[in-house]
Amino acid sequence: MLEARLEQANLLKKVVDAIKDLVQDCNFDCNDSGIALQAMDNSHVALVSMMLKSESFSPFRCDRNIALGINLTSLTKVLRAAQNEDILTLKAEDAPDVVNLVFESAESDRISEYDIKLMDIDQEHLGIPETEYAATISMPSAEFQRICRDLMALSESVSIECSKEGVKFACQGDIGSGSVTLRSHTNVDKPEMNVEIDLTEPVSLTFSLKYLVGFCKASSLSGQVKLCLSNEVPLLVEYALANNSYLRFYLAPKIGD
């Protein structure tokens, strides 16, 4: 059986909120290392990969591999009943029909309990190769969100060019063009404001802004976001969570002429 207790419901609320517009029905794969999710959007352009390590829960118990097929719209409805600060416990039997969610208020004696019916989801699972990326950029997640939103007002696509000079986000649209360039930057007092560019070779790739703006819904999960790029491979956008847990998005590039 599965029993996983989260100190704050907020974490799951934010994760689900960040992915629910991209993917609808997902398997939450539970085993003794934690709870994982991998799902592609309908157009097979973007992929979300979540890992909530067992260390992110206290306690965490899962004796067998259990796949919880959950509709994220249903999960969102139930999670709305949880206060951000509530303690959240997920429970399921070994061959479950439902997943049980318990929300406990730390301040009062209120306990709420919900069951969500599970679905049989036959999901394609992709093997993501280990990649040595040519460029890795760490930057404030709010900055990345702002750049994507600003450029989407002009164009559907953004080119991300990374060189020794820095990283340039550029777009061209009907009304004109725009770009934002960031250079490495260290803020000793506020490390969350750092921009770090790690480059082994120059990279230039084009991506759909619609997807990037969608990924940025995860910004509240982490002060920093990491962008990993190599020419002609999907972009990795990573929001690191506590205890080595993470929320990652992969986006296929736009290629050729």
Partner: peptide, 14 residues
């Protein structure tokens, strides 16, 4: 204009 690729081109099915 460049065309949107899909992930199947890069990631294998398991």
């Amino acid at each position: 204009p460049p065309k949107q690729a899909t992930l199947g081109k890069f990631f294998g099915r398991t």
